[in-house]
Design a binder for these strands. Sequence first.
DNA 1: TGTACATCAGTGAACGCGCGTTCACTGATGTAC
DNA 2: TGTACATCAGTGAACGCGCGTTCACTGATGTAC
Lengths: 218, 218
Amino acid sequence: MVSQDAKTPRERYRAQVRTEIKERAWEQIATAGASALSLNAIAKRMGMSGPALYRYFASRDELITELVRDAYRSLADTVRAAAETGADVRALGYALRGWALADPQRYFLVYGTPVPGYHAPDDITAIASEIMAVLLDACAALPPDGPAAPFETHLGAHRDWAAGHPAPPAALHRALTFWTRLHGTLSLELAGHFTGMGFDPAQLFAAELDDLTGPSRG
Amino acid sequence: MVSQDAKTPRERYRAQVRTEIKERAWEQIATAGASALSLNAIAKRMGMSGPALYRYFASRDELITELVRDAYRSLADTVRAAAETGADVRALGYALRGWALADPQRYFLVYGTPVPGYHAPDDITAIASEIMAVLLDACAALPPDGPAAPFETHLGAHRDWAAGHPAPPAALHRALTFWTRLHGTLSLELAGHFTGMGFDPAQLFAAELDDLTGPSRG
DNA sequence: TGTACATCAGTGAACGCGCGTTCACTGATGTAC
DNA sequence: TGTACATCAGTGAACGCGCGTTCACTGATGTAC
């Protein structure tokens, strides 16, 4: 099998080193947060001198952007994989939770405190849309619910984010609340705001998912 | 009127300078995020030399902790004031939203990405409990809702955070979901994740509040 | 298979920077008699 | 009201540090004939 983008040994080596740089970067972020990420520290950990990294990333900002991109990509893949095996909204929820718990700092790089002035490049926002599309598909497949909330009228008229998607306003609403509610419990849990409160965050998450998908409603 | 803690001119001056330091600190946080906060930069903006600030704060960390404390205090006061004038959960929701929108970075200092390894001092977590207590009061006053979710059984047995509060499990549940859902929409909105989507975040927030307090439920 | 050349990964020195923090000191403000 | 002293706010120099980034260079790897 001849691949079109067959890699020369040098290309393979480059890809490998780039990967290792990112791995060390994630370790550093997990330890001290994204704002403490330092190229020199990464290089030191890899046994290289600082300037060497400039062969692989043009600047610290480019590295961080790449990490953000990878994080989005990873979430999109996770969510898509879950949708393909079950197509159930519930499964999407647990996939999201699993992804978040696996690496809280990666989660925060996507959904945490924004850096004032930073704007993600277009290809990253495209991945975000991709995630919403998967969510919309799953919500459109859900059986209809109670009476339409007034907010759904508004959504029907302001659906830029679902342009081209056939889902009805009720599904848009569901997708949005799915997103915001799960994010609400997850981010508070990951930030440690539940510690010491006594209850099990997993059960709160499950309760939100239940409320979102059925039992107490349908 | 003779106050017990009458301030000498020097004490008043000190308090004044401390306040200005914090004001400049907030400006800086709003501009570049909390991780970029620098004592030297604050001093420069005040027309002082860097070391002068050490008369007022023992270290950069102490200043940040104080800002976090003030943020919590401010939220607790806001929420309490709302509870005292209306005692309505809905009013609490809007008070929270108003507080968050007034200064997003202050909101993120409380609810945003945690710094790995940082632990808030006890008096700050005490303020957090105070906020939850106000919320619990308001939720306990709400009329009973649909059938008890299974999660409420769990909550009835794990209510450390509501120790000493007479609210029934259903009220605990409501307080928790109030907190997580509003935080979900708010933090996504403030982080800019809704920009370009087309709909009005205020209406989504209102819809969540509606769902939480009645119309489509009661 | 061997030689000549081009590519490119990585080094080490250097740049300027701003940071938190310490220290010995000056000068103004307040206190006691 | 005036003098002697203590308190304390703020300064300027200095410390060591680690950062991002540039540059000229070395040496290894790959390519062409």
